[in-house]
Every structure is written in structure tokens, then in C-alpha cells.
Nucleic acid binder design. Structure first.
Length: 418
DNA sequence: TCTGGGGTCCTAGGACCC
DNA sequence: TCTGGGGTCCTAGGACCC
């Protein structure tokens, strides 16, 4: 048996923990660059606001109803997330962290699962102030679905155990939502399924496997099996080795100057290389991309993407940076209104699985340098030391973040004063 | 003019997730 | 005026090999 536990409106709930005055007020959290709404509380949904809506389209509504608006504060959400995961891990033998706000828990060997669900839920609320919901079921897909229902049916009080339902009620539960609400069935697949008359999760669970095989990829068959209670999607407590590291940001304003792009690419390269070292990995392929403003129809659109194989596995900033800058030289075209740039590291291995190049004496120097930079930035705050290209440009490329809350839990200078 | 079978690897694009 | 970021997996098609 598995549980899927997630924080309700997680980012907004994190903000509320430190702003009790917002408890009953609508709250929304924005994407980077203060662009779109990415998280909303129930009160905000009730006003008709939707996830994904650009902020500027709903400015009036937000003003009229005094909606509290926050820029994203990943320092805070990341820290609250690890606290929540730690609480959950203290109750169950194994946890698979699935995203910043949710995890699967392996419940094998445990008893009284429903009351355990309630206990976990109330401990999370008591200890860190985040409201959470719990779905419990024999497969991950069903646990996810139970969680979905627990969030929507107030009578369940935040916890639903599939095995508490009679077979009749299980059928009803599967028939009461649209097929697109199932984990793994997105807009495209649900449209195709609905054309075949498969409208609800129940329909999908009863569909003939032969038909599904003919018309859909393998994951749809697995999902259908999981809905029947047959485990087809593995529980993975160990995070699989990541395959890529990507850092990118949209710019606050359109950028035309190559120096601005250089600054952005430099910053992303530094950060991406920093992730490599933090996770004790090395990468063999470095790529960048620069994109024009896709909403500006009157100016030329441009997608510049390229990457280079380094021949050896590296994790130092100077090497990554060097290649990123060379790629920018190749891709840059003048006269384009650029809106976004990013750096991608691929072909990744753990450090201990990669051999240093025996004759590359410089490698060790660069690694030492990078380690020193990491230490200084860890001790005195990120950005204390950086490569000069980052500072050698205008402000256009930087991110907009006008309504960010303090880093209450991770910076002494920003701790809440009472 | 005819023109096999079996395999791997890589890449791009699409779909999905949060 | 303002429109997010970071991932994974699957599939098809092409290149290449014996």
C-alpha cells in the first residue's frame, strides 16, 4: 500500500505560515519574473482566478478583491518542503519525494492506515503549519487519485483510504471525475480517449487492453492497470540519477545587447556548474539556448540552440563557462529582441564514475578554484563572488521579483520579528 | 533490374508531470 | 507594458554496423 501526501496550495500555504493575517484571504504566488499565477488558494480560485493566467490580465480583479500577491520565493518553499518530507519520513519506512510539495510513502508492514494518514496530516499542520491531504491505495496512480478526491470532498477531512471503500463505492469514486484528472493523462490523451467513449477513470479501468495497445503508448496501458489495482508503476525511494541540469530565465525587458546575454549565460553557467558540484556529479556536454520574444509578433523570431561534447567529464565553472560563451558567439544574431537564455548540462555521471584526464593538469587547479568560490558564496551569501561578466551589463536581463517575501527560515537577517 | 535481416545509437519532437 | 522553469519518458526516423 502507498500513500500520496501533498501540501495544499503549497507555495501560498508557505507564505501564510508567516502571515497569519492572510489565513482567510485569497493568496496567489507568481512564476519567476512575476509573469503568471502558479499557485492559488481556494479563496482565490473562488474568485475565478486560474493557474497559468498572466498577472497583467487579472490586475483589476486582484485589486478589487484585495488578493495577496507574492513573487516566488524558492528559498522558503524548498526549506519548508524538506521539513515536511522529514516529518513524513519519521512515520513510514520509505519515502519517494516526487516534487517540491508531494511524496509517495511506502506503507508496507504498517497497520491502521487511515488513522496513520490523519496522524501524519495533523503533525504536518501542527509542526510547520502547512495543510496537507493524504490518499492511500494499493497503487501509486490510485493513491494519487484518492488524494485528488480527498482535496475536493470536504466530508473526507483530507484523508481517503481506497480500501475503506466497498467495491460499489470504489466504482462510484472512479466514475465521478473526468479521465483527464488521472495522473499521466493530460489534455491530449484525454481528448483522444474521450473520442473512443472513455470519459471517466472507471471507463479507462474497464477498457480492453487490446484496444488501448492499438491506439495509445505504453504508459496509458500501465495507468489503466494501476486503476484496476495492479501495480505497474514502480515505487522509487532512491532518486534516479538526474540526466540533465537546466538553468534558464526570461528577462524582465527585451534584450538586444550581446553583453546582457553574456551576463545571463554566465550566471546560468555558474549556477549549473554549482549544482554539479553540490550533487557530486560531472557532465560531458554543455549547451545553451537563446530565444526571441515569442509574444512580439512584429519582430523576427529566433531560436538559437547548440551544444558541444567536451570529451571529458567536468564540474568546474571556468570550463563550463568557457564553452557556454563560445556557443553564444556562434548563436548570437544582432537585431533580435531576446527574451530568454539558458544553459543545459547533459551526459551526466557521478564524480566517482568519471576519470580525470591524466594529462590535464589545469583540471585540478580549476576544481580548487571552484570549490573556494562555493565556500565563499556559502559563507557570505550567494553572489558574493562571481565572474565579472555577470556585472558588466544593463539591468534588462535580470528577473522581476517585486513582491518577494523574506527568507524567513534560511537567513538570520530575515527571521520574523515578533 | 533485382536488392535481407537484425541490431544499436542518436536526435528531434511530442506529451506528460509539478 | 506585462505571458515561468525544470524535469522525464516515449516514439519515429535516420545513420550506421555486421
Amino acid at each position: 500500500m502507498y500513500a500520496l501526501i501533498d501540501g495544499n496550495s503549497f507555495y501560498a500555504s508557505c507564505e501564510r505560515v508567516f502571515r497569519p493575517d492572510l489565513r482567510h484571504r485569497p493568496v496567489v504566488v507568481l512564476s519567476n519574473n512575476d509573469g503568471c499565477i502558479v499557485t492559488l488558494t481556494a479563496e482565490a480560485k473562488a474568485l475565478g482566478l486560474k493557474r497559468g493566467t498572466p498577472l497583467f490580465q487579472v490586475k483589476d480583479l486582484i485589486k478589487r478583491h484585495k488578493v495577496a500577491v507574492f513573487s516566488s520565493n524558492y528559498e522558503l518553499y524548498g526549506d519548508m518542503s524538506s521539513r515536511m518530507m522529514a516529518i513524513i519520513a519519521s512515520f513510514v519506512p520509505e519515502v519517494e519525494v516526487y516534487s517540491i510539495d508531494e511524496c509517495f510513502a511506502n506503507l508496507s508492514g504498517l497497520k491502521n492506515l487511515t488513522s496513520l494518514g490523519f496522524e501524519i496530516r495533523s503533525k504536518i499542520f501542527q509542526w510547520i503549519g502547512i495543510p496537507a491531504c493524504v490518499g492511500i491505495a494499493p497503487t501509486k496512480t490510485l493513491a494519487k487519485y484518492c488524494n485528488h478526491l480527498a482535496k475536493r470532498v470536504p466530508a473526507l477531512k483530507g484523508v481517503l483510504n481506497w480500501n475503506d471503500l466497498t467495491p460499489e463505492r470504489q466504482k462510484k469514486a472512479l466514475a465521478c471525475q473526468r479521465v483527464g484528472e488521472i495522473w499521466g493523462i493530460g489534455a491530449q490523451l484525454s481528448r483522444r480517449l474521450e473520442k473512443l467513449g472513455i470519459l471517466t477513470p472507471l471507463d479507462l479501468s474497464l477498457a480492453s487492453e487490446g484496444l488501448l495497445r492499438e491506439c495509445f503508448p505504453i504508459n496509458v496501458i500501465q495507468t489503466a492497470r494501476e486503476l484496476r489495482g495492479l501495480e505497474s508503476i514502480e515505487f522509487e525511494p532512491e532518486a534516479p540519477l538526474r540526466q540533465r541540469i537546466l538553468r534558464s530565465r526570461s528577462f524582465a525587458n527585451d534584450v538586444f545587447d550581446k553583453n546582457d546575454l553574456l551576463s545571463a549565460v554566465t550566471m546560468h553557467a555558474e549556477e549549473a556548474a554549482g549544482v554539479l558540484r553540490k550533487e557530486r556529479l560531472r557532465a560531458k556536454r554543455v549547451g545553451i539556448f537563446i530565444l526571441s520574444n515569442r509574444f512580439k509578433l512584429e519582430s523576427p523570431s529566433y531560436v538559437g540552440v547548440d551544444s558541444v561534447d567536451l570529451g571529458t567529464y567536468v564540474c568546474d565553472t571556468p570550463t563550463v563557462l568557457n564553452h557556454a560563451v563560445k556557443l553564444l558567439d556562434r548563436l548570437f544574431k544582432p537585431g533580435i529582441a531576446y527574451k530568454k537564455a539558458g544553459v543545459v548540462l547533459e551526459d551526466i555521471k557521478p564524480q566517482e564514475e568519471t576519470a580525470f584526464d591524466l594529462f590535464a593538469f589545469e583540471d585540478e587547479k580549476k576544481s580548487t578554484l571552484s570549490a573556494v568560490l562555493d565556500d565563499l558564496n556559502a559563507k557570505y551569501g550567494s553572489g558574493t563572488i562571481c565572474f565579472s561578466a555577470v556585472k558588466r551589463s544593463s539591468e534588462d536581463w535580470k528577473m522581476r521579483r517585486a513582491m518577494k517575501s523574506p527568507s524567513y527560515t534560511t537567513r538570520f537577517s530575515e527571521v520574523l520579528k515578533v
